[in-house]
Each structure stands twice: as structure tokens, then as C-alpha cells.
Nucleic acid binder design. Sequence first.
RNA 1: GUGACCGUAGUUCAGUCGGUAGAGCGCCAGAUUGUGAUUCUGGUUGUCGUGGGUUCGAGCCCCAUCGGUCACCCCA
Length: 433
Amino acid sequence: MALSKTPYRGTRDFFPTEMRLRNYIFKKMAEVSELFAYEPYDGPLLEEVELYLAKSGEELINDQIYSFTDRGDRHVAIRPEMTPTVARMVAQIHREVAKPLRWYSIPNLMRYEKPQKGRLREFWQYNADIFGAGQYGEVEIIQMAVKLIQSFGATHEHFEVLINDRRFVDLVFTKLIGLEENLTKKLYKLVDKKNKMDPAKFSNEVKAITSDESKALIFEEFVSLISTGDITKFVTKYSADSLAEVAPLISLFEKFTEQGLAEYVKFDPSIVRGLDYYTGVVFEIFDKHPENRRAIAGGGSYANLLQIFNEPALEGVGIGLGEVPLKEFLHSHNLSPDFSKPELDYLVAYLVPEGEKPAMSLAQSLRESGHKVELYFGEAKPKKIFSYSEKKNFASVCFFGEEELKNDEVKVKDLKRRTEQTIKVKEFIEGKR
RNA sequence: GUGACCGUAGUUCAGUCGGUAGAGCGCCAGAUUGUGAUUCUGGUUGUCGUGGGUUCGAGCCCCAUCGGUCACCCCA
């Protein structure tokens, strides 16, 4: 029976065309990270499931994790996210390294999901984390993420960073509204749907959950907040002595303004994020394209992740940016360069058998001067050489025919300009050094 | 996990009322014995996703199953 040629569901084969795009994207990620003095790291593909049990979200553990029991009866998972791994690594060395600690990585992750647009089972995710920097870290991570997306040619017209703070959310839910935890979760599910529902129905459902008219009103007022000015007024109105608790969020936005990021960032009370380890600022970067409204990146501050390793608290701020939604984003705004063909410098060919030796040595010399060179195997007619070089997108073709061989010459044709010259082989090589 | 649509040549797709399987692109060769994006000529290509059912007869109808795409959910 024949085996299937298609890759496992939700995974991809990266043919050279796709690999060029991937390399282009990964290179930008590394370049921008290093401009901000972030260092590369990586961890294992497998981790013990326990690592995720403590602080990742319920859905991620129960429904989305790939796990198995190894020969030593250990419960093992393919990493579904990188943050627990970084935290584990940082927990080993944080006492002895200079802080803040800035690290980035581009791991492949797997989640058992039903594949669809912008979401697969195996994907690569850019991760950057900064430890021990407090609010400066939040500003820097978002500044760097903006820079990264800008490096692909995008501007504030294409994307925005939506920001919230779990401390503010907790203040509203526990102090101002006074709800039990399971009710707050229900309320939040509703927030996400707010834009898709009509306002009256939304109000009714809020009332149903809070079972209290005045609490429902506070909640509705909260979800309609759109600026830091609104936040201050809102908190002053209901609990003036809690203003200190929203001060970090307010000052964060002030810093963004100072950094010239005002047109990229926006307060949005609906951003909560599913991962349980976030304790402070949370954010998601959204595509503004009306047909591709989705998060391409997400992150936030987590203060307590090192405690699961019995280490003292060390605040981290991290971001994860998926390569799959990033490609959708670039595609939706026409920002994806054409990688359908390779970029190669020279095809070296010969028309007669006597050309083999000079062709081989010319190819070798050109490689030594740093050019990408392919030697055409066997003698061939010009027509074949040229149509082949066209398909493989060579910049130039060098070839040896009877006439060239007589005079130690080579014919070099520039395929883009459609110009050609006959030149002494020695002279040609000299010119390329 | 729920729902919708789709599976035919390497690829993109057509296939009427159920009656022996088609086109474009690609690939190979030639027109053109030393010049590539055009043109022309010839050639190459199938377990119609898989299994079962209905029928004299199924690519087409029915059931199941697998796969793909998309939406919901959630997120990167």
C-alpha cells in the first residue's frame, strides 16, 4: 500500500520557496532582538507535563498538549509554549547573572488543534523575555515588538498593540463589583463577544451574571473604557483610594507616549489572555486589516513563575509572536516579498566536452570569491543552458564553446540586462575578487 | 469538540440528464547544428481520496470513513 505524501495534519513541509520566506522572517527576528541586546537561547523539545500544570491555562493542558509516557514512566509533553522553559532555565542561573536578563528564541511548538487559517499544530514562535526590569521591561518588550513588525514594512495603519492590566481587572472585579471567581470568568467570556452582540442583549446577559443592576452598570462602564483618562475618572468615581493600584498602568502609557509609540498602543479592557501565569500588564498585537482581525502576538508580565521552582520571585515580561499569523498579517497587507525563486549568481556551462575542465575550475574560482555558483553537468546546447538558467533564476551564465576555448576566454551573459561579453578567463576571475 | 463547503493527471480545474475520463499550466522532444520570458508542432500524465450500497451501468445518487479548507471556541 502506498504511503501518504502529505505531511501530518497541521504540520508543513518547508520546500525551498517556503524556507526562504521562513529564513527571511527568522533573520529579522534575530536582528531586531540583537539590536536590543537580547541573547539567543533554546531549550528541549520535550518537557515534563508537570512544568505546564502549574501555570499554563486549562485549555492548553487539557485539550491541546501532545503528551506521552516514556519508557521510564515519565509523563512527557512536546512543548506547547516556551515561557515555562525559559522560566525553568532562568531559575537555574538567575542568582549569578547580571540583570536585567534579556533572551530570545524561535522554538517550534506543537498544540493539538483543528487547523485553520493562521493556526496550525506545529508552528514556530518568536519569544523574547526580560527578567528583573519591572515596568521598563514592559515598555521595552512592546517597543521591540513594534520595531520587529515595522521591520517587515508595517506601520500603525497595519497593526496595534492592545493593552490591559490584570491588577486593574482584579480591582474592578473583586473590589468594585465584588464577584466570585467563577462569575468573573463568565463575565470575561462575554467581553470578547461584546463587539459581535447588540448592546441590549449584552446588558441583559451582564445583569443575568451579576444579578445586581448597579454591579452590572459598573461592569458595562468598565468594558467601555478606552483611554487612561477614562480609567482615572472611573476609579476616582467608585473607589478613589484605589487610584494607586492603577498608577502603573497610567504611567506605562505615559512612557509609551515619551517613546513615540502613542499611535501604536491602545488600552483595551477585553484583553485578558488565557495563560494563568500573567500577573500584571497583558497585551496582544492585532492586525488592523478588517478581513484578518486576529492576534499575531501576545504577552505580558509574570511575577511569580520562578516560585514554582522554589526560587525567589523575579519579575519577567515576555512576548510570543507566531510565525503563522505573522505570515497571514504580511500577506493581508501585501508585505511579503517574493521568494518563489532562489537568488543565484552564476551558472557555469560548456558546449563541448573539452570545456569541462575549464568550467569546473572557473566555478571553483567564483565560489572562492564568495559567489553562488552551479556547474551545469555535461555539455549542453545553448538553448538548454539558457532555459535552465531562467528557471533557476541565475543572474548570469558563463559558458565555454569551441571559440572561447581556443583563446582561453569565457562568454559571460547578464541575464537581467541581456548583455554579454567575451573575456579572458584570468581577467574575469581577477575582476571578481 | 460543534457546524459548513470541498476531495478528478505533477498542479489548477471542467466533467451536462447516471452511459467507456477532459482542458490549461508544467514536463520531454522538435521547428531553430552558438543564445533564455514569445510562437508553432508532437509526446507524456489517472486506483475519479478510501470502503460499502443503489443500478443493466456510478466521477455523478445514498451511507460510512479518511483528508483538506473555513467558521465557532480559543489563541500565536
